[in-house]
């Protein structure tokens, strides 16, 4: 085991770890704002990657019709609420946002020459299809039970995960796909060679993390999310809509998930069920951060990536066992070092 091998293993581990880090950030964000343990996070990775693959194959991705269907359901729920609150004037806006925009997008995807568009446009279209699924899922599955216990929200998450997984199989089939690299080839610095795609992954991850940091520190919406995360009731009293905060955090989670999928799909073949395991590894990272700390969660996720890479070298058959066993000492350590205050649950 020489220096060269270490270098390659570290590179591999950091590349995978970067993706896990993104997912762990999304998990921490969603949990902090809505108390939802977002198991379906991984599905957005698969949806993102497979939607992009469909667009590159020149086909309108089936997810866009899912978006239209979810939009119709969300519009129905919102209209029902508006009618009950006798605020009928909102109905056109509700219809426009939930149904009009997805239908317009579906129309564009039907007529545009998808396969020949530049990669950037394909990626933007992918995000336009997949990201709105996040807030719509929040509206339909979580918003009606937003005040429920963490356990109930977790059970809802399991249900949403299973539904999205089955739909993924229905939309994309059991066969996996792989998309071409953003940039082919590799870069040699001294003894190390870096695939350009790995550099893209690490670079974009860092950019996204910086972007999220700026969003939370500098923008009003970011501050509203932070306020909701710190104290839901307090934020509500200050006039912050918790529904808006929930939808926004789900939109960010979907964005991060779909973008991870877009980034990782040139590296490996993505199947409808690939995302789940990636999401779980991000979850291990998030647990290391106590589902509260963004920097510790991302460091933890990179550690998971490195551990995975080294265990695939030393004991490949036990790789997953080793990675997921990591959670036990972490939980022991956390329960010994932190004073756990039971959150009041209604």
């Amino acid at each position: 085991m020489d220096f060269q091998i270490h270098l390659l293993l570290i590179q591999d581990g950091v590349t995978n770890g970067a993706i896990y880090a993104l997912l762990s950030l999304a998990l921490v964000l969603v949990f902090a704002v809505t108390r939802v343990i977002f198991i379906p996070q991984g599905e957005f990775v698969a949806y993102g990657a497979l939607t992009l693959a469909a667009i590159q194959a020149g086909k309108a991705p089936p997810t866009v019709w899912f978006l239209v269907a979810l939009g119709a359901a969300a519009a129905g729920a919102d209209i029902w609420q508006a009618v009950r609150e006798s605020r009928g004037s909102r109905i056109p806006a509700i219809l426009g946002i939930n149904l009009g925009l997805p239908l317009a997008l579906a129309g564009i995807l039907q007529v545009a020459p998808l396969a020949t568009l530049p990669l950037v446009v394909q990626v933007i279209l992918t995000l336009l299809v997949v990201v709105p699924l996040g807030p719509m899922i929040y509206r339909l599955a979580y918003q009606p039970v937003a005040e429920a216990t963490v356990l109930l929200l977790l059970i809802v998450s399991v249900a949403v995960h299973l539904a999205l997984l089955g739909l993924g199989l229905f939309f994309f089939g059991a066969e996996g796909t792989r998309t071409p690299s953003f940039t082919d080839g590799s870069l040699s610095i001294g003894p190390a060679t870096f695939q350009y795609q790995s550099l893209w992954i690490i670079g974009i991850t860092v950019l996204l993390i910086v972007g999220l940091f700026a969003f939370f520190e500098r923008t009003l919406y970011g501050k509203a999310l932070r306020a909701t995360a710190i104290n839901r009731t307090g934020a509500k009293l200050m006039g912050i809509s918790t529904d808006m905060a929930g939808k926004l955090s789900f939109a960010l989670a979907a964005l991060v998930g779909a973008f991870s999928g877009v980034l990782v799909s040139p590296v490996t073949t993505i199947y409808y069920d690939t995302g789940f395991l990636m999401g779980l590894k991000g979850f291990v990272g998030a647990i290391i951060g106590g589902l509260a700390s963004y920097p510790i969660a991302s460091l933890g996720a990179v550690m998971v990536g490195l551990l995975e890479s080294y265990s695939s070298f030393w004991a490949s058959a036990y790789k997953e066992v080793i990675v997921f066993t990591l959670i036990i000492p972490v939980l022991v350590w956390r329960s010994l070092t932190t004073h756990h205050v039971e959150e009041e649950e209604h």
Partner: peptide
């Protein structure tokens, strides 16, 4: 030696390096 991976794995770098050694 026997080096394993799973259908959904994103890379087999570690296993390949082991075999190369």
């Amino acid at each position: 030696p026997i080096e394993g991976f799973a259908r959904t794995d994103t890379s087999v770098t570690g296993q390949v390096l082991k075999l190369m050694s």
